[in-house]
Simulated scan of single mutants.
Amino acid sequence: MRDFQDKTIIITGGGGGIGSATARHLASRGGQIAVYDRDLNAAEKTVSAIKAEGGVAQAFACDITNRDQIDHAVAATEEAFGPISVLVNNAGWDIFRPFLQTSPEEWEKLIAINLVGALHMHHAVLPRMAERKYGRVINIASDAARVGSTGEAVYAACKAALVALSKTLAREHARDGITLNVVCPGPTDTNLFAEYAKGAGNPEKLMEAFRRSIPLGRIGTPDDLPGAIAFFASDQAGFITGQVLSVSGGLTMSG
């Protein structure tokens, strides 16, 4: 299936677990992938994997808390691949401690990466999509945004804000032919989740508790996410906007 043939797709945090898996999946379906990551080496590894599989991709060093870097990367992406059709806001960062053990400096970094960075990306890309009357935006939040998560107060708050932002922008840009939807991963085996487990003091006990609480009986993997993201990015989802989908093995079930 080549339903993303020649479509330009930006994926932030594309050097990480979910971002890299999503980049490879969308490239396999014909997308031209712009892999944004603060760690250029990580982005280039994703690009190398895509090219080895016959896909098209380019790495861009981009710290999403820096608007100048974003503007430069977006312009360079369109110069390399043409108009942007899809934006996947995936980049994120977290610390895992009870709220009262965190500092205002840590809050600022969490907010800058998980919320302000996404604001910058929308602000840079949406005008280009609106001008062309077409766009798909998929924001990667978290089930922590829907139900809370011990030790992730500020992260959960940022992701909840991202859900509200997505719904609001979905309303504002519906007449521009742009859809905005949200995918909320549950516990997923990424480097970020590994750090979370370490912070819990007894990682294996925590992992076993998650496995017991997830109806499907296992922790998610990065490869569990691209299908949902690709659906929202596809023309099959052209009449779906402002929606939130959990990919959590049934850990959270919202009507």
Score class of each variant (00 low, 15 high):
R2N: 15
D6G: 11
K7Y: 00
I10Q: 06
T12Q: 03
T12P: 08
R24T: 05
Q32Y: 13
D37K: 05
D37V: 07
A42W: 09
A43N: 07
E44Y: 00
T46S: 11
S48Y: 12
K51S: 11
G54H: 06
G55N: 02
V56A: 13
V56Q: 14
C62V: 13
T65D: 08
R67Q: 15
D68H: 13
Q69T: 11
D71W: 01
A73W: 03
A75H: 13
A75I: 12
E78V: 00
P83W: 07
N89T: 09
N90C: 08
A91D: 04
D94I: 13
R97E: 15
R97P: 10
P98I: 12
P98G: 09
S103E: 15
E106A: 10
E108V: 10
K109N: 14
K109P: 10
I111T: 09
I113P: 04
A118C: 11
H122C: 15
H123G: 11
I138R: 06
N139G: 08
N139V: 07
N139H: 06
A141M: 06
D143N: 14
D143F: 08
D143C: 13
G148L: 01
Y155C: 03
K159N: 04
K159H: 06
A160H: 07
A160K: 03
A161F: 03
K167M: 10
A170Y: 01
G177V: 04
I178N: 02
N181C: 01
G186L: 02
G186Q: 08
L192H: 08
E195L: 14
Y196G: 07
G199C: 09
A200T: 15
E204R: 13
E208V: 10
R211M: 09
S213T: 12
L216N: 05
G217N: 00
T221Q: 15
D224L: 02
L225D: 02
I229D: 00
A230V: 05
A230L: 05
T241Q: 02
M253K: 12
S254F: 13
